[in-house]
Computed example of a mutant assay.
Amino acid sequence: MKLIKISPIIALSTLLFGCQSNDFNPESKISTITDAETKLQKAIEDKSCDASYQCRVISYGERACGGPSRFDIYSIKTSKQEDIEFLATEITSFEQAYNQKNKAFSSCEHNPAPQTLCLNKKCEVIKRE
């Protein structure tokens, strides 16, 4: 039996290149709503998918009348769901605090969540008629 020697550096680099890169660090400081929104947009910018089950909708923010202020779509193929949910919760907390402090008011109309599908290997919103 012939043994093949593999350099530890080659073995380690092979393992590292196989890992999904995600620049988001939940421990990093989020001191403003702008910080949270910027991190969220960066975390969901790649909407690549192989199948529709990978496409998700996240609701976040807080309208003064209740309910989320906005929705975004993302792919669990390229984003960690836990990170997206964490950032959405942070944004919602900032908006809740703002609304309470400023006695804000808003429209009370119902905004339904969008639906999404994987079309041409990208998560897309389905247009409602």
Rank of each mutant, 00 (worst) to 15 (best):
Y53I: 13
Y53K: 14
Y53M: 12
Y53D: 13
Q54F: 02
C55Q: 10
C55A: 10
C55P: 11
C55E: 08
R56P: 02
R56C: 00
R56K: 15
R56G: 05
V57G: 06
I58G: 03
I58Q: 09
S59Q: 09
S59C: 05
Y60L: 08
Y60Q: 11
Y60H: 10
Y60C: 05
Y60G: 06
Y60I: 12
Y60W: 04
G61D: 09
G61E: 06
G61M: 10
G61Q: 11
G61H: 04
G61K: 13
G61S: 13
G61V: 10
E62R: 01
E62L: 02
E62F: 00
E62S: 12
R63Y: 03
R63S: 11
R63A: 12
A64H: 01
A64P: 08
A64N: 11
A64I: 04
C65H: 09
C65A: 15
C65W: 01
G66M: 03
G66P: 07
G66L: 04
G66E: 12
G67L: 02
G67N: 08
G67P: 02
G67T: 11
G67F: 00
P68W: 02
P68N: 15
S69Y: 01
S69A: 14
S69C: 05
R70S: 13
R70G: 07
F71P: 06
F71E: 09
F71M: 06
D72K: 08
D72E: 14
D72M: 06
Y74H: 06
Y74K: 05
Y74E: 07
S75I: 05
S75A: 08
S75R: 05
I76L: 00
K77S: 04
K77G: 06
T78Y: 00
T78M: 04
T78E: 07
S79N: 05
S79E: 03
K80N: 14
K80V: 08
K80T: 12
K80I: 08
E82G: 03
E82Q: 09
E82L: 01
E82S: 13
E82I: 06
E82T: 14
D83M: 04
D83E: 14
D83F: 03
D83I: 01
D83G: 07
D83N: 15
D83Y: 04
I84E: 03
I84A: 03
I84F: 00
I84V: 15
I84S: 08
E85Y: 00
E85K: 08
F86Q: 12
F86N: 14
F86L: 07
L87K: 09
L87Q: 04
L87W: 00
L87P: 11
L87G: 13
L87A: 08
A88C: 11
T89V: 10
E90V: 14
E90C: 07
I91E: 10
T92Q: 04
T92E: 03
T92F: 02
S93P: 02
F94Q: 14
F94Y: 04
Q96M: 08
Q96W: 00
A97K: 15
A97F: 04
Y98N: 10
Y98K: 14
Y98G: 13
Y98W: 11
Y98F: 07
Y98V: 09
Q100T: 13
Q100V: 07
Q100G: 09
K101M: 03
K101H: 08
K101I: 11
K101D: 15
N102M: 13
N102E: 14
N102F: 07
K103N: 15
K103A: 12
K103L: 12
A104D: 13
A104W: 00
A104I: 02
